[in-house]
C-alpha cells in the first residue's frame, strides 16, 4: 500500500486572530509529525508570516476576503499552502530586507523569514488569482538528532557590547 499523504484545510477570516489560529494548528501537526522544538518554532513562525502576508498585503485587511490554509503531511515532508484573495505578487519585486538601505524599514521581513526557516519556499498564482505561498520542511529522520538541528544562526555568534 502506498504511503498516505494527510491533508488538512481550513478557511480563515481576514483578521489578526487568524494568525495565531493558523500557527497553533500547524504547530500541532508539526509536533505530531515528530518535528523537534527548533523546527516547530521555525514552522510556526513561517506560518505566522505567511498568514500575516495574506492578511496585510494580499487581502489588505479587508474582512470580506478569506485566507485559505492547507497542510499536507507526506512520508517525507510537511507542506503548507497559504492562499489569499489579493492580486498576487512577484517575489523578484520584494525588497531585500538585508540591504543597507532597508535595515531600518518597519516591514518587509516576512518573506525573508519564511525562506530562511523552511527547506522549500515558492510563491505562485493561486486559484483565487491571489498569491499562494507554498513552503515545506523535510520530516526528521527517525532516530536522528532530537533537536532536529540547531538554528543555523547559532553558528554565527555575535559579540555583545
Amino acid at each position: 500500500m502506498a504511503p498516505e499523504t494527510k491533508h488538512l484545510e481550513v478557511t480563515l477570516e481576514t483578521q489578526v486572530e487568524s494568525v495565531n489560529l493558523a500557527e497553533e494548528m500547524c504547530l500541532r501537526v508539526a509536533e505530531a509529525a515528530g518535528f523537534g522544538e527548533d523546527d516547530c518554532y521555525r514552522i510556526g513562525m513561517s506560518v505566522r508570516e505567511g498568514v500575516i502576508n495574506a492578511f496585510h498585503y494580499g487581502n489588505q485587511e479587508k474582512p470580506e476576503k478569506k485566507i485559505y490554509l492547507a497542510v499536507e503531511l507526506s512520508p517525507d515532508k510537511m507542506t503548507i499552502h497559504v492562499l489569499d484573495e489579493g492580486k498576487g505578487f512577484n517575489l523578484a519585486d520584494v525588497p531585500d530586507p538585508l540591504a543597507e538601505e532597508n535595515l531600518l524599514s518597519t516591514s518587509g521581513r516576512g518573506i525573508f523569514l519564511m525562506r530562511a526557516f523552511m527547506d522549500e519556499f515558492a510563491v505562485v498564482t493561486g486559484s483565487t488569482g491571489g498569491a499562494e505561498i507554498v513552503m515545506s520542511k523535510k520530516l526528521p529522520v527517525p532516530g536522528g538528532n532530537p533537536a532536529n538541528g540547531q538554528s543555523n544562526t547559532a553558528n554565527n555568534p555575535h559579540q555583545e557590547a
Binding site: Y41, L103, S151, T153, A161
Partner: peptide
C-alpha cells in the same frame, strides 16, 4: 533570549541595535 537574538542576527539588526547582557554595563 536565544530566539530573539537569532532573529536579530539573521535580519542583520544586530548591526543596528546595541545589545547588552549586563544591565550595569548597559
Amino acid at each position: 533570549t536565544k530566539k530573539v537574538r537569532d532573529l536579530l542576527q539573521i535580519t542583520k539588526l544586530f548591526t543596528v541595535f546595541e545589545v547588552f547582557s549586563d544591565e550595569g554595563a548597559a
